[in-house]
């Protein structure tokens, strides 16, 4: 994991959902992706709170889109993973995999 930063569980899920969505994404598809993959409801407020934390760490960037009538004239806020975000995700994956590999008993139980 990169020095000086740490990702909480939900932040990591949001970051990975954003990477899975590939292009720029806003709150609704990110929440749906988490719901589909993790099987748990993701409150939009929690998603935005996590995205703001990720943005303050420089792991994602955002821009405002155009307002649409379907949304009551409100704009979407599109998020994108930064290079630093990708690096952080890879580092987290390595760290978690390394820790996971160190628990053979649990691995056998899971398989």
């Amino acid at each position: 994991m990169a020095r000086g930063s740490s990702l909480g569980e939900f932040e990591l899920m949001v970051l990975l959902a954003l990477i899975r969505l590939e292009d720029e994404a806003y709150g609704v598809p990110i929440a749906r992706e988490i719901e589909q993959c993790a099987g748990r409801e993701a409150a939009l407020g929690s998603v935005y709170a996590a995205l703001e934390r990720l943005e303050s760490k420089g792991l994602v960037s955002s821009r405002l889109g155009d307002p649409t009538a379907e949304r009551g004239g409100r704009a979407k806020r599109f998020f994108k993973v930064t290079d630093q975000g990708l690096t952080e995700a890879r580092a987290t994956q390595r760290a978690l995999t390394s820790l996971w590999n160190g628990i053979p008993g649990l691995r056998e139980q899971m398989s």
């Binding site: 709170a49 379907e70 949304r71 409100r74 806020r77």
Partner: peptide, 14 residues
């Protein structure tokens, strides 16, 4: 939050 308007928009859309 800065996310307030987009959040309200997302909720409206859903």
């Amino acid at each position: 939050s800065d996310a307030n308007e987009p959040l309200v928009g997302d909720l409206t859309e859903e």
